[in-house]
Amino acid sequence: MSASVLFDTPGPKARRRHRIFTIVSLLLLVGFLVLVVMRLNDRGQLEYALWEPFLTPAYLEVILEALLKTLQMAFGAILLAIVFGVVFGIAKLSDHRIVRAPAWLVVEFFRAVPVLLLMTFFWLAFSIGGGPLSPFWCVVIALTLYNGSVLAEVLRAGINAVPPGQAEAAYAIGMRKSQVIWLIQLPQAVKIMLPALISQCVVALKDTSLGFYITAPGLTAVMRPIYLEFQNQVPTAIVIASIYIIVNLLLTGLATYLQHKLVGEKKQLDVPMVGGVDSGRAV
């Protein structure tokens, strides 16, 4: 352990104490895991029959299809959210209050309302009983509005994080406002924003699971028929959760890689939380 704010480099006495704590906590953790596995075994949850569906090609195909649907929902929502975010992020940076105020209102509204509430609303209003939208699109639209609003805020923070000298220099050589944003600030901001954008993909991917409540397709929707048929709730939950975790870890890995590659060890982008009164704009 290198230098820490919290404690000095341990001496011989402290090291002995740490060793004792290490052994005790290791025993406790291993004991806990053993208890969990024993419990699962006692209740017959480790029997092959319950896990068999996840080794059967036909079921694997169904699960992969569901994963594909989940990914479609997540990435569809993110792509639309980027468009939404750019439009509203730039509107929030406008010099004119008449543009800024409605954009602020829309962004704050969709950031403060639960995604599930949005989904349920679109489902009730436009899908149930022969409406024009399928539950799939209800999920995509709700995720677009929420993630788009977050991205609008990310974009604004990203543009504000570009050193002000850049915009000043651009104005000094006679560029217009729109040129300054599109040619000078946005390209530099994208670099700073990319990790935050990918973290938002993780959020969107996790939130597609909420489609469960409105009968949308996806990984969580495919669980119910499987566990109802085989009564294997525990294995199903473990398998589906693992799929989510693996995909998310891959995305997080990408975000960290890009953070190192593009932004370096600098502090991450500081996105203001929802409910802020400040609707300030760039210099």
Binding site: D207, S209, L210, T220, A241, I245
Partner: peptide, 11 residues
């Protein structure tokens, strides 16, 4: 952090 909240509810 990488598990959807809904999956934790299902667990």
């Amino acid at each position: 952090r990488n598990t959807p909240l809904l999956m934790i509810f299902i667990f």
